[in-house]
Design a protein around this nucleic acid. Sequence first.
DNA 1: CTCGATCCCTGGACGC
DNA 2: TGCGTCCAGGGATCGA
Length: 312
Amino acid sequence: MPELPEVETVARGLRRAILGRRIVSVTLGKTDFIDDPAALEEHLPGRQIAAVERFGKFMLLRLSAAAGLNRVPTNGDAAPAALLVHLGMTGQIAPMPSAQPREKHTHVCLLLDDGRELRYTDVRRFGRIAYLTEAPLAEELKEFGADPLEASDDEFASRIRGRRARIKALLLDQSVLRGVGNIYADESLWRAKIHPARLGAQLSKQQAKTLRRVLQEILQKAIVMRGSSISDFLDAEGEPGEYQRHHRAYGREGKACYRCKSSVRRAIVAGRSSYFCPKCQPGPRGFAVLPLRGETKKRVKRRNARRPSARL
DNA sequence: CTCGATCCCTGGACGC
DNA sequence: TGCGTCCAGGGATCGA
């Protein structure tokens, strides 16, 4: 769920919190989502966190040469490197007092030189962590598309309008644009009044232009609001975001469209639940919309039974 | 090139 | 109450 705005929020928090700190030691839990766990244990201790960057949905902890060494390292640690961190669906990363008990599903702990621990927790382990030196890192990053906040009109249009894939699939494709996920894809398509199943090549120049503009506006506003907390997203300070209150399509199945009051519907596009207004965002002929799975009397009754105060 | 299907993983919602 | 099932979805991978 963490997409560009959420990752940007976490990266900014980390920048404030751990920039310049030195890593003292490494403790690992489950490691099946880590590229090369042994490399973390071997190369992180002694390194200084020189920068925290966001690249699409990745965070990049830039590591400078091991500090204060009285000998030349023989394992390559004199050269710059980076820790690549992807939060997947449920990843969280934050510095904590070492004395604080570790949360369940904590899989990486980096003890810092100020006594705190930078902890990575990830219930579902859809995230990814990798220690990379410069060449492999460059190799890794070159596969990705444009940053949606930086792409020009022309670049955006050429990446979208030259493709026969569905616009939703293109927005989600990290090799086309880096950082957009399911929420911000649906939100930008709603605002641009484009159905998610339209083909990239089908968009007019004007539609591509509009889509780029609203996508940037939405991402920027979401960053200001510190992202969307729909499941369990928390930033590096442990705070939820606020942008979920501004969602106009995502998760609003059966609710009234903010523009035309039609019922927002859901369909599977590019293998993902996609929310849109069937009136504002007309779809290809005969495009299948899923039957509403909204409120049944039974569900309302059940919820009220759990939370009686919800009726007041 | 593009598609859908399948897998990874866990917890919460739901139905019976 | 408890148990089984489905769903959430970013990404990799594979076959059509």
